[in-house]
Lab assay of single mutants.
Amino acid sequence: RLGFCQHHDDEVLHLYCDTCSVPICRECTMGRHGGHSFIYLQE
Rank of each mutant, 00 (worst) to 15 (best):
C25I: 01
Y40F: 08
E27A: 10
Q42D: 14
C5W: 00
H36P: 01
T19N: 09
I24N: 00
S37I: 11
C17V: 00
Y40W: 09
M30K: 13
V12Q: 12
L13F: 05
G31I: 05
P23I: 02
E11K: 09
C28G: 03
V22G: 07
D18C: 10
E27I: 08
S37V: 13
G3L: 06
Q42C: 09
F38D: 05
T29F: 08
R32P: 13
G34W: 03
H33L: 00
G31L: 08
H14L: 03
D18P: 05
V12N: 06
D9F: 12
R1S: 11
E43D: 15
M30N: 14
R26D: 09
Y40T: 14
I39G: 14
I39T: 15
E43C: 03
E27T: 12
D9P: 13
V22P: 01
C28I: 03
Y40E: 15
V22M: 12
G35D: 13
R32F: 11
Q6V: 04
G34N: 08
T29D: 06
E27M: 09
H7F: 12
D18R: 10
C25E: 02
C28P: 01
H7W: 06
T29M: 13
H36V: 00
F4C: 07
G31D: 08
C5A: 01
T29V: 07
V12I: 10
L2C: 04
F38W: 14
L15C: 06
F38T: 15
Y16S: 03
L2Y: 11
D9V: 12
R32N: 11
I24G: 01
I39N: 15
R26L: 07
L13Y: 12
R32M: 08
S37M: 12
Q42P: 14
H36G: 02
Q6I: 11
H14M: 06
S21M: 12
Y40M: 15
L13I: 03
G3H: 05
C17W: 00
R32Q: 15
C20H: 00
T19W: 05
C20F: 00
L13T: 08
S37C: 07
Q42N: 13
F4I: 10
V12A: 08
S37L: 06
R1Y: 14
G3M: 04
M30Y: 14
E27V: 08
Y16V: 08
R1C: 12
Y16N: 06
C28N: 04
L2S: 07
F4Q: 05
L15H: 10
D18H: 13
R32E: 15
C17H: 01
P23W: 11
H7E: 15
C20A: 01
H8S: 07
F4V: 05
M30W: 04
L2D: 11
D9L: 10
V12E: 14
G34P: 05
D9Q: 15
M30Q: 14
R26T: 12
T19M: 07
F4S: 05
I39C: 14
D9C: 10
T29C: 09
L13R: 04
D9S: 14
Y16A: 03
G31E: 10
C5D: 01
V22S: 11
D18Q: 09
R32C: 11
Q42V: 10
T19C: 03
H8G: 08
R1H: 15
E11M: 15
H36I: 00
C20Q: 00
F38E: 04
L41W: 09
V12D: 09
E27H: 06
C20P: 02
S21E: 11
L41D: 14
H33C: 13
C20V: 00
G3Y: 06
D18S: 10
Q42G: 13
D18L: 04
T19P: 07
E27Y: 06
F38R: 08
H7A: 08
P23R: 12
L41C: 13
I39Y: 14
C5M: 00
T19Q: 15
R32K: 13
G3K: 12
G3P: 03
E27K: 11
H14W: 03
Y40H: 14
Q42L: 08
H33K: 00
R1V: 07
M30L: 12
Q42R: 11
H14G: 09
G31W: 04
I39F: 08
S37G: 10
G35F: 03
S37P: 11
C17A: 01
G35S: 13
Y16R: 13
I24R: 02
S37Q: 14
C28D: 03
R26I: 05
Q6M: 06
C20E: 01
R26A: 11
I24K: 02
Y40A: 15
H7M: 07
